[in-house]
Design a binder for these strands. Sequence first.
DNA 1: ATTTAATGATACTATTTTAGTATCATTAAA
DNA 2: TTTAATGATACTAAAATAGTATCATTAAAT
Lengths: 135, 135
Amino acid sequence: MKLLTRDTDYAVRALIFICKAGRRREGATVTADEIIKALKLPKALLRKSLQTLSKNKILISGRGKRGGFSLSKHPSKINIVDIITIFQGPVNFTNCLLRNTPCPNRRMCKVRKKILNLSKYVSSALEKITLSSLS
Amino acid sequence: MKLLTRDTDYAVRALIFICKAGRRREGATVTADEIIKALKLPKALLRKSLQTLSKNKILISGRGKRGGFSLSKHPSKINIVDIITIFQGPVNFTNCLLRNTPCPNRRMCKVRKKILNLSKYVSSALEKITLSSLS
DNA sequence: ATTTAATGATACTATTTTAGTATCATTAAA
DNA sequence: TTTAATGATACTAAAATAGTATCATTAAAT
């Protein structure tokens, strides 16, 4: 059972790398090539993930020579749910037992509720895992 | 984010149906065709799910005329994790942040632990959702 | 100005997983 | 012997995931 798809996974790793670089040198920017080289990830795919992250304001990007990426906010403000949500949609286990048909009975709805609560729990647990705690 | 795939979902619905039939009439068996008709699920696929369930001793099957399926144990002893595990493998979120490379540092392992605990939590929460509570 | 080194946008292919179908063998009651 | 059921298995289709390639745009350095 997969919690993270590849692009999410790559994004998280890249973020950790960028975070560390920022810690070593204030205001540092990191290029896609540097990340690819360091983490040995597939180039085109990682570039896409980075673009997605900057579209979603997790990263700030600079274009042109001397361009690159840096975190848009403090690593303690960036958590895993946000990243998962960007790449895979919201962490939400519902509409599973009740796919095609409307809820067949009242008891079923109890389960729906249980599963909804469960995904809320998972979501908030993942929310507590921030970039700070990862790097 | 999907918790159940189709075959799991169909299996759970079928189990609920069989459970209810058993409650109406002691020792009742239910045929695949009855389930398909009642729940309007794709025939060949549901048959496959039922076969999987009986291979895994969740259902008892009888062949030949008057054959069909019935629960192998009390509905309070059949829970969702078991069904998920049969169709989708164990509920386990790990080996996600650490796909290709070995764990890059100690901090990372903390997260691995967090995620492992999280999936244990999910697993045991799903274990509490039994067929009794569903039907 | 031009070159160079970066990201942005986007379209495409390949692979894997999930979903679904079809067919024939086997069994057991009527 | 027929009929109505499941068992086994091989196959196709669709969707999601993973990965590639290309060209446009930008901005610093020369």
